[in-house]
């Protein structure tokens, strides 16, 4: 474990916590008898969260952590895997099933057919992988899928008029975690002999590059102290 990877994991955890906080805000908001101003805004405007991206992430974790009970790495590793699995599936459940949270989901805007991402990633994983075994192919599939999983969310943000802070921070943290992982891979490449994982590195690089324009608009909105807005 190195500082880059720990920072990456903590940033990833933060992104999940921000999303859970946002869902909690929506839930607690609607419970009120009177619509406070924030509540009114939250309930009226769509939450800006893409269910498609959340479902893709649940699939990413489900296919990546198949070894959670077979290969014990460390307590930290197991706990983090359980957190990511638990949170990703419960977020999907909230947006799909929870009587209040589902109202803030705008399915007319979240129209990305994520099936078109799953199939090519699966085919690619069958062709390009480190070892042609069931677990390894699904693990590679999870890497390719995670690289593109943010697309429905980024497209939804372009369509969302006013992106609220929590959603913007969620996407930023999600992009930042993988950027930190790239530093981790560079560090491990120079400090551990035989540590070479081209598939992981290239997928992680593509994933981070997909956030490039979001990062640009995110930092611009911070610098100019204006609302985050993505060009359509």
């Amino acid at each position: 474990m190195n500082i880059f990877r720990l920072a990456g994991d903590m940033t990833h955890l933060m992104s999940v916590l921000v999303l859970l906080l946002k869902i909690h805000t929506i839930k607690s908001c609607a419970g009120k008898s009177y619509p406070c101003s924030l509540c009114f805004i939250l309930l009226e405007s769509s939450s800006g969260i893409s269910l498609k991206t959340q479902e893709l992430y649940a699939l990413v974790f489900a296919t990546r952590y198949l070894d959670i009970f077979t290969d014990f790495i460390s307590v930290y590793n197991t706990i983090m895997k359980l957190i990511f699995l638990g949170s990703s599936f419960s977020i999907v459940w909230y947006i799909r099933r929870h009587k209040i949270v589902r109202r803030s989901y705008d399915k007319d805007q979240d129209t990305f057919r994520h099936f078109f991402l799953v199939l090519p990633c699966l085919l690619l994983a069958l062709i390009i992988n480190e070892k042609f075994t069931f677990k390894e192919v699904l693990w590679t599939f999870s890497l390719y899928l995670e690289a593109v999983a943010i697309l429905p969310q980024l497209i939804l943000l372009q369509r969302t008029r006013n992106i609220d802070n929590l959603t913007g921070q969620y996407v930023f943290l999600l992009g930042a975690y993988r950027a930190l992982y790239i530093l981790n891979w560079i560090y491990r490449y120079f400090t551990e002999p035989h540590y070479v994982h081209w598939i992981t590195w290239i997928s992680g690089l593509v994933q981070t590059l997909l956030y490039a324009d979001f990062f640009y608009y995110y930092f611009s909105s911070l610098k100019n102290n204006v609302k985050l807005k993505l060009p359509a």
Partner: peptide
């Protein structure tokens, strides 16, 4: 190593 490559990253 003979065992399948164990992925130690999340």
């Amino acid at each position: 190593p003979l065992t399948a490559e164990v992925h130690d990253e999340l």
